[in-house]
Computed example of a mutant assay.
Amino acid sequence: MATITAADVNKLRQVTGAGMMDCKKALVEADGDFDLAIENLRKKGQKVAANRADRDSTEGAVIAVVNDAKTAGVVISLNCETDFVGKNESFVKLAQDLAALALNYTNKEDFMNASFDGMTVAEKLIEQTGVIGEKIEIASFERLEGTFVGSYIHAGNKIATLTSLSANVPGAEEAARNVSMQAAAMSPIALNEAGVDQAIIEKEIEIAKDLLRQEGKPEAMIDNIAKGKLGRFFKDNTLVNQDYIKDSSMSVTAYVKSVDANLTVTGFKRVALG
């Protein structure tokens, strides 16, 4: 039987992040074979993952990152089961490292197959499931590209957003951050009226009509009044039409144009836990 030293255990712990006792046990079972010990820990993670597959993973950390050129950004949500784990410094660091890697990929599938710490991202999540003892998964992956992209992460890493602007002008970075903050706080369903699904529009019109009938409005007037109420719905629920949270006397569109007369918001992504 191979002699397992404290240095061996510590090395395995540094590589995998597993606890000292788990590392020692894995090395003993592998008779000192380092690679086999890593494989044993992964198998443990697979077993834990299988046992917890039906658990809800609604806690975690949402991280947004933007490239150096400010032309692309990603938001990922690394989810776990408990708020205690989600706030853990090493868990948040893992989410940040994964987000930095995600910036190099355009879709979740390629990202999950990307190399991370000598294994794929998917394998890393299984490993960490074994280490932490909770279901760990990438619940969201969103990418945004544009002429200028900015980001915002809400305190506690519960919500993160990206916003793209039409030009890189003086003040664009602050504007993109402020609009990203707006999206985080006000949860718009679309950028503008054109982005709202037709089924949602039809549903809102029908709700308005039903309410108007209950109020006893004449049937001949209902269609026009309902369409007017739809305008209020767009104002409340589309990003560029919302009242700007830092100055409700202007819309988000007006705020952006106060930075530069030709500047517009071209897109956004919002990811929240839960």
Rank of each mutant, 00 (worst) to 15 (best):
S151T: 10
S151W: 02
S151L: 14
Y152W: 06
Y152T: 03
A155W: 10
G156F: 02
K158P: 06
K158V: 14
I159D: 02
I159H: 04
A160H: 12
T161G: 06
T161E: 07
L162C: 08
S164W: 06
L165S: 10
S166D: 12
S166V: 12
S166Q: 13
N168K: 15
N168P: 01
N168A: 15
P170W: 11
E174A: 15
A175Y: 05
R177K: 15
R177E: 04
N178Q: 14
S180E: 06
M181L: 11
A184D: 02
M186G: 01
A190L: 08
A190S: 14
N192K: 08
A194G: 11
Q198M: 12
Q198D: 13
I201C: 00
I201Q: 00
E202S: 10
E206Q: 11
E206G: 00
I207F: 08
I207Y: 01
L212W: 02
L212F: 02
Q214K: 15
Q214G: 00
E215K: 14
G216N: 13
P218C: 06
A220R: 14
I222Q: 03
I222K: 11
D223N: 14
D223H: 08
N224A: 13
N224S: 15
G228Q: 11
K229I: 03
L230G: 00
R232D: 14
R232Y: 05
F233Y: 13
F234W: 07
F234G: 04
K235H: 08
L239M: 05
L239H: 05
Q242H: 09
Q242Y: 05
Y244R: 08
I245N: 04
D247Y: 12
S248I: 09
S249D: 13
S249G: 03
S251K: 11
S251A: 06
V252F: 02
A254F: 02
Y255S: 02
Y255I: 06
V256D: 05
V259Y: 06
N262V: 04
L263M: 05
L263W: 05
T266F: 05
F268V: 07
K269I: 11
